[in-house]
Design a protein around this nucleic acid. Structure first.
Lengths: 252, 252
DNA sequence: GCATGTGAATAGATTCACAGCG
DNA sequence: CGCTGTGAATCTATTCACATGC
């Protein structure tokens, strides 16, 4: 935009737009899939398809990381995978602490899908002393007052808030005071953090309400008894078959 | 190319920007809190504080719904609450089906926090016949092949995908074929749906990777007292959030 | 020739700043 | 006055379209 961002591999710290950052994980996942199929090169078009975005966006996004493609050919899968991993910090270990070991906290603790790439649950913490000492997935629950030591000793970098909403802010404050600078909040509450601390939220109620908003504006609200005319949206393939692996492990 | 309210619709009077729609639930929640404190009027400034956004945004957002405020005074809490509820469809009942009753599916089924306003779990479905018949939170697990009847009879309007990633697309197709037009996907996979179907995703791995990206750029493993840097995210402005006593608890 | 990389054009969201009105 | 409502300005993101370079 103003000062030459560009060309270089010199130490220019390119500024990557937030929207792009949010899509890098999609490219990462798509590339992992592609790599597993032993495919060595991929076009922006194909990558876009697998990531569920459009090709122009892929090219623009990847161009922020550097010019890693080859004109007329595409992107080298392994190389691009490596670059994106590096940008996302997936080559490191990120110890995570979960605060609040209720239903959700336990589900998170059992979630195997994300331990895979560097995110490792290193602590389970709860304010309820009755829970302290119990094990979940091989990890003992610890008292929340031990947070400062836990964070320091295990170098916790990410805290997940899985408590009831009314203590979410309090927990966030404790995490920040203990030195955590990245927080993922699952509690349905607005939580403020100081500058320098990143905070993202996952809020089921909000998602449902957004869906409800749009559903309301579609043809007919759910009241419809006759699902009549929907023949149009039949999906062709016969999916009545297998569908085996639906069991266990949460999504992922 | 996925959701988006979209075309071919009878004349919608106002078009509400997507970003605004995504914030309405925040205002809704803040207003519920305010109402519980028996406060009858609220300014855009105060509402902004409680919702974690800024006042200009609140006013602009609310202006899309109509001019419901009073200059020099503020917004009538009850009235605004009613308007937003109506826009979000929270005055109706939205039966939800959860597909995939593993760890996450169960956590979702037990999650009491969202049942509060109209979202009611009306079906638990799984492909694993060993699970069929078992009860979770008083609701019996049913076979996925019964989906069409379940959706039709219980007027399911929202489907949640809580299966492993490799069957997510298949499940989405089944939901759509059964008549579901709003989907919330928890599986870490890109899922495509036809026009007219809304689909949102909640992806833990993506959130963690985004946090990891920004954490990497915060200059080192554990530094404190730092300003600048991040640039992109971090929560809106400082707000103190004074309300305590949110109701709805999540997780046990 | 062909797919990337990127300026330019467009669309969308946020913020500013102040007019308008109770 | 005080606070909403909103055009205008700004900033961010997406899309277009084509020159570029393998």
């Amino acid at each position: 935009m103003s000062d030459r961002p560009g060309r270089g591999h010199s130490g220019t710290p390119r500024r990557i737009p937030e929207a792009t950052v949010a899509r890098l994980p999609l490219y990462y996942r798509a590339l992992v899939d592609i790599a597993e199929h032993r495919i060595s090169t991929v076009s922006s078009e194909r990558l876009a398809e697998l990531a569920g975005v459009n090709a122009a966006k892929v090219r623009k996004d990847l161009s922020y990381l550097g010019s890693y493609g080859t004109r007329g050919v595409g992107y080298d899968v392994e190389f691009l995978l490596h670059q994106i991993s590096r940008e996302l910090g997936l080559t490191r270990d990120w110890p995570v602490a979960i605060v609040g070991v209720g239903n959700l906290g336990q589900a998170l603790a059992n979630y195997k899908g994300f331990g895979a790439r560097g995110f490792r649950i290193a602590a389970l913490v709860d304010a309820d002393d009755d829970k302290v000492g119990r094990e979940v997935d091989g990890l003992a629950i610890e008292p929340i007052r031990a947070l400062p030591e836990i964070v320091a000793e295990r170098q916790i970098s990410i805290g997940m808030i899985a408590t009831p909403a009314h203590v979410a802010q309090e927990v966030a404050d404790l995490l920040v005071a203990a030195g955590v600078r990245s927080i993922l909040n699952f509690a349905p509450a607005v939580v403020a953090v100081p500058d320098g601390v990143s905070m993202r939220k996952v809020d089921l109620a909000i998602e449902l309400q957004i869906l409800s908003f749009y559903q309301l504006r579609k043809g007919g609200p759910a009241r419809r008894r006759d699902r009549a005319a929907t023949g149009a949206m039949d999906v062709e393939e016969g999916l009545e078959q297998g569908l085996d692996g639906l069991h266990q492990g949460m999504a992922g």
